[in-house]
């Protein structure tokens, strides 16, 4: 029987299929719908220090093969997350990764310390890449110096496993990845959504209340796959693939590119069964092709890995 266990820092997961931040709420919303038992971990909605109302509606518009969202990091804030949401999510049979976003290194440290000291939190994802909140012209996700400061501050604040969620919307993702690794990140989540928009011609205005939103879903998959390929080669910390993963084939491609785990998000909306189907699919693939562990799949399409397999 092939072994689906995979590891990110101190977090050992029974399956490499995680659920992406923003799509599963705080977890309990999906109880009875998603099979959490077949899931490696859930990543919560991003928590900010203060509660956020989020953007004016409409917040969603479907696109060919994808979805644009402009939720705007609506969340209950750190205090209510710790007091209510975390205890409610704790009984779910799945590790919880808390996603957090601050306005700067100080807030990231505050958030990482606060969620990091809770036993219910298995790991922390630092979200520096939401495209839907106010930002300066030079977004933090493109700034290796700022990213290094954020990761260092969070690193000092907690001993819990830290993954940094990168943005695909940058010309030099490798410098950012490098800065995060140097500053002590345990893993990188590659990657968030790409900015985009639609216009409602009938009403002659942008389809989203926020004008632009983040593109997710199948249309994003090849973009983020290419980023995983690049980043995985460049850093020695584990990479978690994210972006339009909807079935076993997609998950295999991300693993083959060098990801040690994958996050499923938008696919849950049409197919809440996707995480368990992908876990089953991976197991079948491994059985049929003689793989014993997820480690053997990671990077299997990379030349160094292929050469190694051929000479063995």
């Amino acid at each position: 029987m092939p072994e689906l266990t995979t590891r990110i820092g101190d977090l050992t997961m029974r399956s490499p299929v995680m659920l992406a931040s923003g799509t599963v709420g705080y977890g309990p919303e999906y109880e009875g719908v998603i099979d959490f038992g077949a899931t490696g971990a859930i990543v919560t909605k991003t928590i900010t220090v203060e509660p956020r109302e989020g953007n004016a509606p409409p917040r969603l518009v479907e696109t060919p093969g994808g979805l644009l969202n402009a939720i705007g990091l609506e969340n209950v804030g750190l205090e209510r997350f710790l007091a209510e949401k975390l205890p409610e999510a704790a009984p779910l049979p799945v590790p919880i990764v808390a996603s957090v976003a601050g306005t700067g290194a100080g807030q990231f440290a505050q958030l990482a310390a606060a969620v990091g000291e809770r036993d219910e939190v298995a790991a922390i994802e630092l979200n520096i890449s939401c495209p839907n909140v106010e930002r300066p012209r030079n977004p933090v996700w493109s700034d290796p110096v700022a990213v290094g400061e954020i990761v260092s501050a969070a690193r000092e604040a907690t001993g819990k496993t830290l993954s940094l969620k990168l943005s695909p919307n940058t010309s030099d993702i490798l410098s950012v990845a490098e800065a995060a690794e140097r500053a002590g990140a345990d893993a990188l989540t590659v990657a968030n959504t790409l900015p985009g928009m639609r216009i409602d011609i009938e009403r002659r205005r942008p389809a989203l209340g926020n004008v632009t939103g983040g593109l997710s879903g199948r249309a994003l998959m090849p973009v983020n796959l290419a980023l995983v390929w690049k980043v995985a080669e460049h850093v020695s910390i584990p990479v978690i693939g994210s972006g339009g993963i909807g079935d076993t084939g997609d998950a295999l491609e991300f693993l083959a590119a060098g990801a040690v785990a994958v996050q499923v998000g938008t696919a849950l909306f049409a197919t809440p069964e996707a995480p368990s189907e992908i876990a089953d699919g991976l197991r079948n693939y491994m059985e049929e092709n003689g793989f014993a562990s997820i480690d053997e799949l990671v990077g299997m399409a990379r030349e160094e890995r292929r050469t190694c397999a051929e000479t063995a």
Partner: peptide
């Protein structure tokens, strides 16, 4: 409203 999750998780269909 346009909806994604249908269960209150994604906060996409707000009023």
């Amino acid at each position: 409203e346009m909806m994604a999750c249908g269960v209150g998780a994604c906060r996409g269909c707000v009023v």
